[in-house]
């Protein structure tokens, strides 16, 4: 029983790492642009498929394809913002949300058009897992968790040590004051999309490594990603880390008592409970 729970906890941390990377992007975008970006899951999927092209088409190892996928997804995010969202900056957030819902659907269609509707994987065959004390750990799991830790650390350094990172925090903190201080909002917004899109790409690749690639993978993971962002207090990227881990662990551990098919319902329930009991998230904040 203990072994089983520990095993599930490992899966939970892996899933939590993936959700965290997605939720940070959602939170950053919400903090600066003040809308819930519903196309974020599909941006993750797009990054995963960029990687697939290099892995399946050119024989890249997955890790080597990641930088290209990060750049690709970042550019895609900026392009979407410049062609669509930018024209809606003065619209109410609700309109941007609907627009991003449309973008989500459009991105999924593009994925189907380019890469086809079937399930795909980066590497066929079964990885030889490591076993100790009855626990099973796949090398991929280790890479996913390590990768997430490195990226979160890098993001932390970016937000606290660089001028642009601080400007992002400033805009999220107090938009009006940022503007009267002369912080160039459009440039910060562009960087925000680049960071959010890049993290989404890695999250998508990890999700593809952990499960498989499918055009609907992004939409399916959107609910847990938002649950993680909300749990952490949306608009606050550091909260997203805690939120991601809690949701990931809860979804995996819940399979002890309920049918695994209903894992998304666990994320949903936690999110709703959080929204009702503590709308500001796990930690107090100003968002």
């Amino acid at each position: 029983m203990v072994t089983e729970l520990l095993q599930l906890a490992i899966y939970g941390v892996v899933l939590g790492s993936i959700l965290t990377l997605g939720a940070i992007g959602v939170s950053l975008i919400y903090g600066i642009l003040r809308f819930a970006h519903f196309a974020h899951g599909d941006l993750m999927a797009l990054g995963a498929y960029f990687s697939l092209s290099l892995v399946a088409g050119l024989g890249f190892p997955v890790w080597a394809s990641a930088p290209f996928a990060i750049v690709g997804a970042a550019l895609a995010a900026i392009a979407i913002d410049q062609t669509v969202y930018r024209h809606l900056r003065k619209s109410p957030p609700i309109i941007l949300l609907i627009s991003s819902f449309g973008i989500a659907i459009a991105l999924r269609s593009v994925i189907q058009l380019v890469w086809g509707p079937r399930n795909q994987v980066y590497a066929s065959g079964i990885q030889i897992p490591w076993r100790f004390e009855g626990l099973v750990i796949k090398p991929d799991h280790v890479w996913i968790v390590l990768g997430a830790v490195v990226l979160v650390a890098a993001l932390h350094l970016f937000l606290t040590r660089t001028k642009m990172g601080k400007a992002m925090r400033a805009m999220s903190d107090n938009m009006d004051l940022a503007l009267v201080s002369g912080i160039p909002s459009e440039r910060v917004i562009m960087v925000t999309w680049a960071v959010g899109g890049g993290l989404a790409a890695v999250a998508g690749i990890f999700l593809g490594m952990d499960t498989r690639l499918h055009p609907v993978m992004g939409w399916s993971v959107l609910l847990p990603v938002f649950a993680a962002a909300i749990l952490g207090g949306i608009g606050r990227p550091y909260g997203a880390i805690a939120g991601g881990m809690v949701i990931g662990l809860a979804m995996e551990m819940s399979t002890v008592v309920i049918d695994p098919t209903y894992k998304p319902a666990v994320a949903f329930a936690l999110m709703v409970i959080m929204l009702v009991v503590r709308p500001q998230g796990l930690f107090k904040g100003n968002a």
Binding site: L97, P264, A265, M271, P279
Partner: peptide, 16 residues
């Protein structure tokens, strides 16, 4: 809830 939170919640309802 605010309208954007409700939107996310409805995704969850449909999924369940």
């Amino acid at each position: 809830l605010r309208s954007d939170y409700l939107a996310i919640a409805t995704i969850g309802i449909a999924e369940i």
